[in-house]
Design a protein around this nucleic acid. Sequence first.
DNA 1: TCTTGACACGTTACAGGATAACATCCTAGA
DNA 2: TCTAGGATGTTATCCTGTAACGTGTCAAGA
Lengths: 165, 165
Amino acid sequence: MPDTAIPAACAFADHDHAACSAAGLAQAEALCAAQGARLTPVRRRTLEILLEAHRALGAYEVLERLRSDGFGGQPPVAYRALEFLEAMGLVHRIRRLNAFAACMRPGEAHQALFLICRRCEALAEAPGGRVRAAVEAAAAETGFAVERASLEATGLCPACRAEAP
Amino acid sequence: MPDTAIPAACAFADHDHAACSAAGLAQAEALCAAQGARLTPVRRRTLEILLEAHRALGAYEVLERLRSDGFGGQPPVAYRALEFLEAMGLVHRIRRLNAFAACMRPGEAHQALFLICRRCEALAEAPGGRVRAAVEAAAAETGFAVERASLEATGLCPACRAEAP
DNA sequence: TCTTGACACGTTACAGGATAACATCCTAGA
DNA sequence: TCTAGGATGTTATCCTGTAACGTGTCAAGA
């Protein structure tokens, strides 16, 4: 059981974990109710796990926690819940890390831009509206219609820039 | 051996495969020579495979072809060659597809933006300079220094937009 | 009340993607 | 010629993801 420990923090700035975790759950409930979607126990717990971890987790890390909470312990259980949450805009998938992270702005339709520190593995979600617009502009020139975009950058976070030259 | 057939074409517009394939190899040789890197037989053949396929291939698809050409048939062989080629800017990795594709503009330092059709699975590489600039601008606001960015969009290519409503 | 259909959950089994670690070999430069 | 570094090859294993099937649950309509 190697703790594949993906990233560390979830934003570069400090903030109140407990608060944003609770808020995330509340918003999730509201959002699902509004859309007639069912935030079932597994789904709810999956979201909680990501909110509590407050960093990106691999599907198998999520799965392990679900299992120890008495839910089904096979991969499809985790993948299905994560897929649902992603479709609801409550969770993001970070392909570069093969991992998932709770969304920081559920509800607000937005394009996320992920900033991944290669040194401390911190992960931040930045507003990607303008980037998205640029993507659509570039795509339009070839006649391509963008539906979804994954925007992920690796580099150095503020702290690591200061420490490592 | 399910042919996992990832995408189809490599650009939305028609063009001369043989020519761009030959050009790609020539440029690769020049580029490696200039940087004192060794374009060994496996590496060269790996690039050829991607240029000939003219679409994104999974590492195991590449591996299979290398094997049938008499090269080592174990995963690290393919991964190492692909890694080298990516570092040289001759090959791109498309994370959304878990696949690799030959670069369309080797030599020219550039930021690629991938457009992936969800219907016909065609893949195009669009110029991502402006998108990259937008990413850096957004990152700068949090103090993050971007080193690499992977920009991938899914949607509908021109042909599929016309066919499917 | 009973039926039925959609959806969620769970499991098995496997396919596909990636890497660590070690042995061997080749090759450019001292 | 010798040698150090890089390149190749192999073994073994791990991580990631999905197809397919069976069961349970709940709500709408007969």
